[in-house]
């Protein structure tokens, strides 16, 4: 397995998440990615994907009153051609099956099915009843990569949920 050197880690953060922290992380990422050549679209896509995945965790923590929990977010430049994003957060065991099911839908859905799901999500009023959020759908559509998910037991009622995805830099 290829060893990731320190210089290739764009960002490594452990701590709480709120809107301001999220924006500081996005700002740090934007500064870092500006140093790399590449298309405007790809640079913006990196910010967008990272922000949506952070927002997804943040919204979950707010919904479940878990704001005291922390996250761990890492962005790694791999082989100078891909950005790997990893975000881990606390996930209640009671929510785990639904979450796995949602990610399976995202990972197995064809682009045309995901666009339909995008339209459904865009038009619905009540977010709580319909599975994956808009952000996770658009991230999958834009990156074209499946989500990798991994669960580790944290305690009796909680798991650690690790989510990974990849952005091609097209360098």
């Amino acid at each position: 397995m290829r060893r990731i050197s320190q210089e290739e880690i764009f960002l490594d953060y452990s701590g709480h998440i709120n809107f301001h922290i999220k924006k500081e992380l996005i700002s740090a990422l934007r500064k870092k990615i500006d140093d790399y050549a590449g298309e405007l679209n790809i640079k913006r896509r990196c910010s967008y994907v990272f922000e949506e995945l952070l927002a997804n965790t943040h919204e979950y923590y707010k919904k479940r009153a878990l704001e005291n929990e922390t996250i761990h977010a890492t962005l790694i430049l791999a082989d100078k051609s891909d950005v790997l994003i990893r975000i881990s957060n606390t996930l209640l065991k009671s929510d785990t099956q639904d979450v796995i099911s949602n990610f399976n839908t995202l990972n197995t859905g064809k682009a045309s099915e995901l666009r339909k799901l995008f339209q459904i999500n865009l038009t619905r009023e009540n977010k709580a009843t319909t599975g994956s959020g808009l952000g996770l759908i658009t991230v999958k559509l834009k990156t074209g990569h499946s989500y990798f998910i991994e669960l580790t037991e944290k305690n009796e009622t909680q798991n650690i949920f690790l989510l990974k995805t990849t952005i091609d830099l097209n360098l």
């Binding site: 913006r44 967008y48 922000e51 949506e52 927002a55 865009l122 959020g133 808009l134 952000g135």
Partner: peptide
């Protein structure tokens, strides 16, 4: 627009 989050997309719609 040069950057739009998903929550903004919903409201723009």
């Amino acid at each position: 627009l040069n950057y739009v989050t998903s929550s903004s997309l919903k409201n723009i719609y």
